[in-house]
Computed example of a mutant assay.
Amino acid sequence: MSIYIGNLSYEATAEDITDIFSEYGTVKRVQLPTDRETGRPRGFGFIEMSSDEEESAAIEALDGAEWMGRDLRVNKAKPREERPASGGWGGNRRGGNGGGGGRDRRF
């Protein structure tokens, strides 16, 4: 099982989160996703602890708690949903040639 932690301060580090969650048991892993373009934290993360009991205790204690000026959202992580494969830019699927009038530039 994994824990989702949302509404994190962008200043929070994996070490900060480990310190907070270690009060409820052994933290095995902390993952803080970053934005691909900017490299900045995305404001959420995932935590794995040694047992379901430790994770449940951490969720109960920390969900809604104020930390680093933000109210945390802490709950069991849901499995990632598969997204349909996209073919490029997606979006507009109009038929027709999509051309637009104008005069012939050869003359």
Rank of each mutant, 00 (worst) to 15 (best):
F44M: 05
E37F: 00
Y10P: 03
A65S: 13
G69Y: 11
F21L: 01
Y24D: 04
R70H: 15
V30Q: 04
E60D: 14
A12Y: 06
L32Q: 00
E55H: 06
N97D: 15
N97H: 12
G99R: 15
G69C: 10
A58W: 00
E48A: 06
A65T: 13
M1T: 05
G99Y: 14
F44N: 04
G91V: 11
A57C: 06
Y4F: 15
E48H: 01
F21K: 09
R36Y: 12
G64R: 13
P79H: 02
A57H: 10
G6Q: 01
S2K: 10
G64W: 10
R36A: 13
D19M: 08
A58H: 08
A77H: 00
E11V: 09
D16K: 02
Y4L: 04
A85G: 10
M49S: 00
G91F: 02
E53F: 05
E66F: 10
E48R: 09
E66S: 14
S2T: 06
E23W: 06
S9R: 04
L8Y: 05
D16F: 01
I47L: 05
S50W: 06
S2L: 05
T26Q: 11
E81W: 05
S9E: 02
M49T: 10
I3F: 04
E82F: 10
G98A: 08
G69M: 11
V30P: 04
D35Y: 09
I20K: 11
A58G: 09
G25T: 10
R94N: 15
D63W: 12
F107G: 15
V27I: 05
M68W: 13
E53V: 08
E81M: 10
R106V: 07
G102A: 10
W89R: 14
A77P: 08
R70M: 12
T18H: 07
A57V: 00
K28V: 01
D71Q: 14
Y24E: 07
A12I: 03
K76D: 05
D104S: 13
R103Y: 11
F21Q: 04
I59A: 04
T34K: 12
G98S: 04
G88Q: 12
G25E: 02
Y24G: 02
P33D: 03
S9W: 01
R103I: 15
Y10Q: 02
K76Y: 12
K78I: 14
N97W: 12
E82Q: 14
F46P: 01
M49W: 03
L8V: 00
P33A: 05
K78D: 08
R29T: 01
L72N: 06
D63K: 11
E81P: 14
P33Q: 09
W89N: 15
R105D: 13
D19C: 05
P84W: 00
F107I: 13
A85Y: 12
T13N: 02
G39V: 07
L32V: 06
A58S: 06
S9K: 02
A12L: 08
D19P: 00
E60S: 03
T13Q: 02
G39I: 09
F44Y: 15
A14F: 03
G39Y: 10
E81H: 12
F44R: 07
N97F: 09
R29Y: 01
R70L: 04
R93E: 12
T18D: 09
K28M: 03
G96E: 15
I47S: 01
G69S: 05
A61N: 11
V74E: 01
T26F: 01
R80M: 13
